[in-house]
Design a protein around this nucleic acid. Structure first.
Lengths: 115, 115
DNA sequence: TCATGGTTACAAAAAGGTGCGTAATTTACG
DNA sequence: CGTAAATTACGCACCTTTTTGTAACCATGA
């Protein structure tokens, strides 16, 4: 998804959040400040190339803040900006909505009885 | 994004909604029932292969309902299911959030004054 | 024959993975 | 004391996989 087709904000957000990693990274960062290696541990299947690229993208979008420290082995910390924090409940809402969809379709009879 | 890495609903929704088209199609369908060719007209840059594939994906997820009619030139209508309708405000909220992010960073001074 | 909605095969493009290199400084070792 | 190794967070080049586009084809019925 290289460039946009419309100028609608919905398409723009999706360009930012599309893919496996962005929402997962935001989710892990909503937990608090993390280092690069923490995020690698959180999701072991991301390659370091992807991790840097996705973090950079989120940083450019103003959702993640990157802080670099002087010292021994280099140390960099990531956390959510205020905008990033505001995004978290919206992502959660999507997750909840999806749970609702599946609860209804996966076990319709049981669900009906339980209500 | 072929398969999932975790079993978290957030990753599952994003697998469904990732990419340029899903949210745009949902947005256009939130307008009411549309035919295949209406959706092509709504966003002229989608290839009809993509359109069928994306509609099929949304249908399988239970978000879009496909209705085929007998007759002349074939006629097929698409609209949102109840679950799909419930998704619309969540997508809108993402768009609004993004507008907010940009309003703040694109013109910080003006914004501050306007408040 | 035309239009509609769709499928299939092939090609192009984009996304993603692997592995090597690098910076700066501390520790370990002979 | 000199030096080599380890650590962390990347960048870069190369290659594979996945996604998307193109184009051609199919069925229906006026």
């Amino acid at each position: 998804m290289k460039n946009l087709v419309s100028r609608c904000p919905i398409e723009e957000v999706m360009q930012l959040l599309s893919g496996r990693w962005p929402t997962l990274l935001i989710y892990y960062l909503s937990d608090g400040t993390k280092r690069f290696s923490d995020l690698q541990r959180d999701n072991p299947t991301i390659s370091h190339k992807m991790l840097t690229m996705e973090l950079r993208k989120l940083e450019d979008a103003g959702i993640v803040r990157r802080t670099e420290f002087e010292g021994y082995p280099r140390r960099v910390e990531y956390d959510l900006t205020a905008d990033g924090e505001r995004l978290v409940p919206l992502i959660d809402a999507l997750g909840d909505w999806w749970d609702g969809v599946n609860a209804a379709t996966d076990a319709p009879a049981d669900q009906a009885i339980m209500i």
